[in-house]
Design a protein around this nucleic acid. Structure first.
Lengths: 199, 199
DNA sequence: ACGGTAGCCAACCAACCAGTTGGCTGTCAA
DNA sequence: TTGACAGCCAACTGGTTGGTTGGCTACCGT
């Protein structure tokens, strides 16, 4: 058995520190821009540990992304009966977790579809399917492709302001960065969706 | 005067080749992931020319982005009277220019707002303002912040499928990659916007 | 004709960076 | 007690990469 199997397992602690530091680093610079030394330093751990625990920079990135994906999945409720409110909640979540959004963007750019995909995304597929089913049920419809497209659009609308914050500022002005600006944007989105679905 | 000022200026030709190659490289790998040697090779030019013409990798990136921005600005008409059709057109444009979208994403991640911004983006600001004015006029409204928010959302909806193509495939299925799938997505977006604005 | 110079290139360079090595320490099973 | 092993670290390595240098060529104004 491994030494120190008790709660304060030091191995798990360094692993967690590494993961946390990696998340910050990858969110800021992406895979290519991230520096292994910087991650180790921020975690207060020798960089060799990265290889001992994760194998490579790329694998560490995958692990970070997977954790982020889980976090997203866990945090946000299903669309359910009210798509507009769903968009509002999603918007709030992404607004308060900009690093997560950046991580998702880096991942999207790194793993462009077709050939190479992030391994183990079945969970993600399931999540999307259940979202579609939830929305279909809430809307009293069949969970077909058209409902799936709706889910996709809703997620997009909710994420967009966090995906392109500078564009938001350029378009709606500096106020976009203020709490009032965020709130106005949120209401705009919710109203927009409500108008669209309510006929 | 510089030698060879006539039309077939070889200097301009290598510069253009470099720009073209850089665009491909940056779209694929981003600033940090791009390799100067690869750009030079693809352009069929010595890499020193990059420094002679542009100064640095970063400056080359800025130049590429600026060109891409101009291209976007030139290609797409103003929102005008029909926001739904505008979204449809934008969607078509981005769908047929995925590299441009990737470039914009890399830029968004590289120049996160606040402190560092891509220099010389006044043109971009103007473009956004005139879009807002165009939409306001078409909708018979004042060009206030709420119209600006609308512009911002419309752009987001149109770009989203090109921004997250894998998510699109995960959500709506493999068919998202087919021409029929794209068309269905386009119609969904147009209908969605029409429903939202027509009340 | 010819000196000046702009464009270009092959070769070079130093810093950087992902990944490795060898050794030290503390714990656990026997 | 002891030997084996897991976690950890300081120091090292060598391939890579952004950027530079010195020289060659061809065109231009005079």
């Amino acid at each position: 058995m491994s030494p120190r199997k008790d709660a304060k397992d030091p191995t798990a602690a360094t692993k967690a520190a590494l993961l946390e530091a990696a998340r910050t680093e990858f969110a800021a610079y992406g895979v290519a821009g991230a520096r292994v030394d910087r991650i180790a330093e921020r975690a207060g751990v020798n960089k060799e540990r990265i290889y001992g625990h994760f194998g490579s920079k790329e694998k560490l990135f995958d692990t970070v992304i997977k954790a982020a994906l889980d976090e997203v999945a866990a945090a946000v409720a299903m669309p359910g009966k009210d798509p507009a409110e769903y968009v509002g909640n999603l918007f709030d979540f992404y607004s308060t977790h900009p690093d997560l959004v950046r991580l998702l963007m880096w991942e999207a750019l790194h793993y462009r579809g077709e050939d190479d995909l992030l391994p183990g995304q079945e969970l993600r597929v399931d999540k999307c399917r259940s979202k579609t089913e939830s929305l279909a049920e809430g809307l009293d419809r069949e969970p077909d492709a058209s409902v799936a497209r709706m889910v996709f659009s809703l997620v997009g609308m909710a994420m967009w302001p966090s995906v392109m914050p500078q564009l938001a500022r350029i378009t709606v002005g500096e106020e976009a960065a203020t709490p009032e600006g965020r709130e106005a944007l949120r209401e705009h989105l919710v109203d927009f969706v409500r108008a669209a679905v309510e006929k």
